[in-house]
């Protein structure tokens, strides 16, 4: 931890990698949710009158899982930009450190000039990185909201499933799945938001 405090640019790299790894979890769960909603719709159609309420709920599931997939894919696209910014910041910081060391060996005006340019590059790189991380945080919060809606839908769908006669058991398992998938996605989002918080503390 000490070395990370001394070199926050390394922490930034690790953070981006951790987030990208969690994105895969979110994407897989969201895709499964979308598939589940399609299967549930087929079951609800077969159940006919008894599962009318459930059928309309599957549209909601499909909609929010689609939005989650879209947001996650959007974040994924940004991940490479984040890596680029993290690398840019890492290199700028390394240069700044080496130039500071060079100044301790020889206090030369050219080294001073280079150092001041490098320091300003580090600041710029940090601003760009923070901006991108803030965007990322907002996108995660958006998914988190979608998952709150998913939890609400899971409860409602359970009520509807209970009225679906012989299809009750299979529709209840859909409700359970929605609930557990939403929890797993929320867990991954929480990990990412905590990682971002931790990074912010390191930068401070």
């Amino acid at each position: 931890m000490d070395s990370i405090r001394k070199h926050p640019e390394i922490k930034c790299f690790v953070t981006v990698a951790t987030i990208v790894a969690q994105l895969e979890v979110i994407l897989t769960e969201a895709k499964s949710l979308s598939l589940t909603s399609k299967n549930a719709r087929v079951v609800a159609i077969r159940a006919g009158e008894a599962a009318l309420g459930f059928k309309s709920i599957t549209n909601f599931i499909n909609e929010f899982s689609g939005r989650t997939i879209q947001t996650t894919e959007h974040i994924n696209l940004h991940a490479s930009q984040l890596f680029k910014l993290a690398l840019h910041h890492l290199r700028a910081s390394q240069l700044e450190q080496h130039l500071a060391k060079s100044l301790t060996i020889l206090d030369h005006p050219e080294s001073k000039k280079l150092y001041s340019v490098a320091a300003s590059h580090v600041k710029d790189a940090m601003v760009a990185l923070k901006h991108e991380l803030q965007n990322l945080q907002w996108q995660f919060e958006e998914i988190e909201q979608q998952m709150r809606a998913a939890e609400y839908i899971a409860v409602t769908s359970r009520v509807e499933a209970s009225q679906a006669g012989e299809f009750c058991a299979s529709l209840e398992s859909v409700s359970d799945y929605i609930s557990s998938a939403a929890m797993r996605i929320k867990g991954a989002i929480e990990t990412n938001l905590n990682t971002l918080d931790e990074l912010e503390r390191v930068f401070k």
């Binding site: 130039l99 060996i105 020889l106 080294s111 280079l114």
Partner: peptide, 18 residues
Amino acid sequence: GIELFSAMLAGILSHTEL
């Protein structure tokens, strides 16, 4: 190597302009 950069930069600036 990267580890020598600082010392090299100081050395170079003792002899020539960057």
